[in-house]
Nucleic acid binder design. Structure first.
Lengths: 208, 208
DNA sequence: GTCTATAACGAGATAGAC
DNA sequence: GTCTATCTCGTTATAGAC
């Protein structure tokens, strides 16, 4: 059957989610997928290459519906709402956890690093686009780097996901705190023209 | 010698930094430490327990001088400067990387999770203290949760550290973007009383 | 394409000499 | 306290039957 490839990809993702990168091997993946261990090497050549393929495929599948919802966001408040919903969904569907584990494994492995970076890019690009759109006419527009900010958001999600694994209550408090901080930017956006100009001048001065 | 324990602890940290959690074993640790592999089990009982001890010891050693410097910070701008210096130092000394790897391994392992959470607490508590101190008389004081914010900062550092392993330029851009965002809070802090009251009222309204 | 069998090796852990 | 030797198991990967 041609869907053995797919079963292996799904099995790889599920194994990373359940046992982490340290508990992921050709045997554990094959057991999860319900296929023979040797098929990992027949179809993908190595565990490595299977992980790379699985990481990219799973991320693509997860980003696609998210990107569509991003395009419907009208303001920063809506973006925060979407972010919280996404975070809740990720706790069960778990693509962020997979990326975090891949990222950990990639630190000492240039090949994994390349694949993981590509997968991360799938999240980063749509987030950067929506930030560009929403901050276009903001008083902080020319002082905020959306390319950097989108990467910071992704890094934050990953850090929080790992944090949640060892301290769920702490991670929840952290997310709440970040939302309130982001609300600050939202409030600044809605300030009157006088306040905006004052703030703008101050920001310019402090941006050196 | 009694310093074999210490050599193993140092070797464990160095091994995690060099080979990640996936490349860390009794054998690789012993090789790095220059001692016999069996001594891991004689001194610590298991690789697991060695990792827990090493993680806590290394974090304590790294946090102690940092906590002293935190107490000397006078304002938010100074805190940001210290954060950037810390980040640069961490790239070479690497305690954050160790924590990130431990965190990844802890996701599927309750015992490691407990030790890692304890080590993270060593970073979180002094950060929370300085945030409490600096934001005490800020217009956003009662709208910012310093407990959550300190955890978000730590999670962010860890996410950025992992990010840097696969995309150094992107991680750098992310850090810059975050600093500019934090500067926004700093600017708000220095607003005049009229603007502060206006902002405060808006924040209150939007905090529901 | 899928299976069994197996090679070659590294893992955690222990026993026992020194 | 440190070493060698060893046990048992899981790991990647391949060879070859079907």
């Amino acid at each position: 059957m041609a869907d053995t490839r797919q079963r292996l990809i799904d099995g790889a993702i599920e194994t990373i989610r359940r046992h982490g990168i340290t508990g992921t091997s050709a045997r554990t993946i094959a057991a999860t997928a319900g296929v023979n261990q040797a098929l990992v090497f027949y179809h993908f050549g190595s565990v490595h290459e299977l992980l790379e393929a699985a990481c990219l495929a799973a991320t693509e599948a997860r980003v696609a519906p998210f990107a569509a919802r991003l395009d419907e966001v009208a303001d920063l408040r809506g973006l925060l709402d979407l972010g919280r919903r996404l975070h809740a969904e990720e706790r069960s569907l778990g693509n962020v956890m997979v990326l975090a584990q891949m990222l950990a494994g990639a630190q000492a492995d240039p090949e994994l690093a390349k694949a993981t970076s590509a997968a991360l890019g799938l999240w980063i690009r749509p987030i950067e686009r929506v930030l560009d759109r929403l901050l276009a006419d903001s008083p902080v527009a020319d002082l905020v780097d959306t390319a950097g900010l989108s990467r910071a958001v992704c890094a934050g999600f990953i850090g929080l996901e790992l944090f949640e694994g060892v301290d769920p209550a702490g991670a929840h408090a952290a997310l709440d705190a970040l939302e309130r901080l982001a609300a600050l930017v939202d409030v600044v956006q809605e300030l009157g023209p006088v306040a905006r100009r004052a703030l703008h001048a101050k920001l310019r001065k402090s941006a050196t």
